[in-house]
Amino acid sequence: MAKLTLSDLEHVYPNGHRGLIDINLQIQPGEFITLVGPSGSGKTTLLRTLAGFFQPSAGSINIGDTLVAGDKTWVSPERRDLGMVFQEHAVWPHMTVFQNVSYPLKRKRFAAADIAQHVTAVLEDVGMAEHMKKKPTALSGGQRQRVALARAMVAQPQALLLDEALSALDEPLRARLRQQLRRLTMEEGLTTVHVTHDRSEALALADRVIVLNRGRIVQDASPAEILTKPANSFVAAFMSDAAVLQGSWTNGTFYPDDKGLYIQPDALASQPQREITGVRCVATVAPEDIRLETIGAHQPADTTVGTVTSVLAVRFGTELTVTWSGGEFEVYAPVGAMIPKISDRVAVHFDRVHVFQDSAMTTHAVHA
């Protein structure tokens, strides 16, 4: 395992598009990080630049103490000692499982006895030892992906790079392989970089989550911090499906543009400096931080009122959509909470709201 260091990294495509902008990132030995962001955010470009498939336009990459890109230095992908698993089950169809997994060791000229020992051990780790004589055509998609993972790990690479490696699999297989992947990388102490479009997967697997947008890192933090302390309104909206509310900040209070919305000051979890007055801001509120109540006979005047337009039962609760005059909220109600019916009018209470002085961020569409 190795430390990965990316310094002032830039990548410009031939058409002039800037795929990576000012990327500075350190990944510690044995750390598992996920790269997440909307389509075109730069996450796959970053992974492939690290792997050596793209040559950066500026900056440098170090794997351990070795400079592999930058300062007139360029080390080709096959010499970087990295394991990589793609979304497609990239195993050679003419080879058996054993032959597929043993290939990296043969290239390194391991002795036959050592190859047999290492391959058997890693196939046992991924639960594929009993299939070692089979060819990929006799395997399921999940089994082929486990073979690809075993091949990437068998030579004990400096780091493991995963490019949407689980996205083509169906649940619950995907959930099982996700657990297996995290266990194996921890047991082997592998430095791992995982690109995924699945935000839940990113949060579940990672020691740190790197959120990208338009080629830049917009937040680098633990999963818990990403959810509870988003760096800006983009992160809140993208990672938590938070509603984004336009408004202004004056004297320590957020005033929504929509006069039908009421946000109590004690709900503000993060906010601009209190002395800032009369500036445009945005507030974000995540689905799990919205509470619905039945409208009472003596409802306070300062209550946000909405209409339920969708009710969907999910595994651990209910997902609802509530509209009001200015838009809609996604609401997550846990098991035991009050569940209204479609067309019901409800009182909407905000338990935790983040306010950001970054209204320009919200003019860009956010797509999972």
Rank of each mutant, 00 (worst) to 15 (best):
L35A: 08
L149A: 10
R80N: 03
E201A: 13
Q117E: 11
T191M: 02
T304V: 09
A365N: 09
S325M: 07
G16C: 08
K259E: 15
E275Q: 12
K106R: 13
R352M: 02
E187C: 05
R144Y: 05
G142L: 08
Q156F: 12
T303S: 15
Q26H: 06
Q273M: 08
E187I: 08
L184K: 08
T294F: 09
R214M: 11
V195S: 08
G52E: 09
V308P: 01
H298K: 11
I290P: 02
M1V: 14
R214H: 14
S167K: 07
G215Y: 03
A237S: 14
W249D: 03
L312K: 11
A360W: 13
Y13D: 12
T307F: 03
P340C: 13
L312T: 13
I295A: 14
Q299F: 03
A159T: 02
G306P: 10
S343T: 15
A155D: 10
V308N: 09
L212I: 05
M84P: 00
G336E: 03
A221D: 14
H349R: 14
L6M: 13
R280S: 10
L203V: 05
G260K: 13
R176L: 10
T277V: 05
A301P: 04
F329A: 00
M84K: 01
A165V: 02
I226Q: 07
G317I: 11
Q87I: 00
D241C: 11
L320N: 13
L67G: 00
L320I: 07
K106N: 12
I21W: 12
R109Y: 08
I115M: 07
D351M: 07
G19Q: 06
H367E: 15
Q55R: 15
F356N: 03
S233K: 01
T191A: 04
R208Q: 10
L139Q: 10
A113K: 12
S39I: 05
T318I: 09
I263C: 03
D8A: 13
S359E: 15
I263L: 15
G317V: 06
W92C: 00
K108C: 04
S325I: 13
S248D: 09
L190C: 06
F350Y: 08
S41I: 00
S41T: 01
N15E: 04
D220C: 07
A148F: 08
P157A: 02
V355L: 06
V305D: 01
V346S: 07
M84F: 09
E187T: 12
E31Q: 11
F86M: 09
T49W: 13
A297M: 11
G30P: 01
L177F: 06
I217G: 04
L169N: 06
L181M: 12
Q156T: 14
R174V: 00
D289V: 00
T44K: 04
T228I: 00
H364T: 14
F254E: 01
V68A: 02
R146T: 02
V193T: 05
P265K: 04
H94A: 04
E187G: 08
S60E: 13
N251C: 00
E187K: 12
T253R: 14
P272C: 04
E275Y: 12
L161Q: 10
H131Y: 15
